[in-house]
Design a protein around this nucleic acid. Sequence first.
DNA 1: TGTCGTACTATGTCTGTCGTAGTAACTATA
DNA 2: TATAGTTACTACGACAGACATAGTACGACA
Lengths: 115, 115
Amino acid sequence: MAEISSDVIRGYNDIIILFLLLNSPSYGYEISKQIRTLSEDKYIIKETTLYSAFTRMEKNGFIESFVDEDMAGGKKRTYYRLTEAGREHYRAKCEEWKLTKEVIEKFIADEGALL
Amino acid sequence: MAEISSDVIRGYNDIIILFLLLNSPSYGYEISKQIRTLSEDKYIIKETTLYSAFTRMEKNGFIESFVDEDMAGGKKRTYYRLTEAGREHYRAKCEEWKLTKEVIEKFIADEGALL
DNA sequence: TGTCGTACTATGTCTGTCGTAGTAACTATA
DNA sequence: TATAGTTACTACGACAGACATAGTACGACA
């Protein structure tokens, strides 16, 4: 299967993760699975990429974490919820996406022109 | 005006530059101006980004350089021409773009859902 | 004489992503 | 009962593309 390289996805992980937090808090493992499912296995985020994105985005005030201490078996799970700044960041990134898409499409040749 | 950040454009400079070499060789300054014009001032590539992309892509065999020694005033200009491998790289990058676009669009919320 | 445009080169920094590794608890299967 | 698999992370270091800053050098124009 074709793969998406780290260079082309760079900068979009924020959009992807924040999208999955728009309606309710979630945590790493679940988000990871949702990305895989929603993208129909076309994009599988690396664990380290995901968790370092959490750290970065929390530092930037886009998300807030809270720990579920009461899980069965005494395990802990760190949830993240979107902040208002994060929602705004998501909106801005979506706008940027639209702009970027427009620009890049200008540099995609017609299939015919490549033969 | 909205700007395109270095993280979202990363990985697409190859496409952009190679597109402008599809039909004829060109050189840095001209390509830089063409990117600006074609994108309607939405994307202005940094000089260092452009020239380091040249170096990288020549190392990878996607482009070849040759110097015009006979310019007026004894100035030199370095041209780049696409190789067959570069054309293939361009094709592959375009495919990757289509895939990436599909994936990212799944994580863009409807305008309504954001209110 | 000085500024603007042309056409680069050099050097070092930044940051998001990735590779590798490790921890630890539960869960299904043989 | 052993072990492989799933869940749910954390730590550390490396990489590479983009960027900031600076400098060079020639020509045209005022």
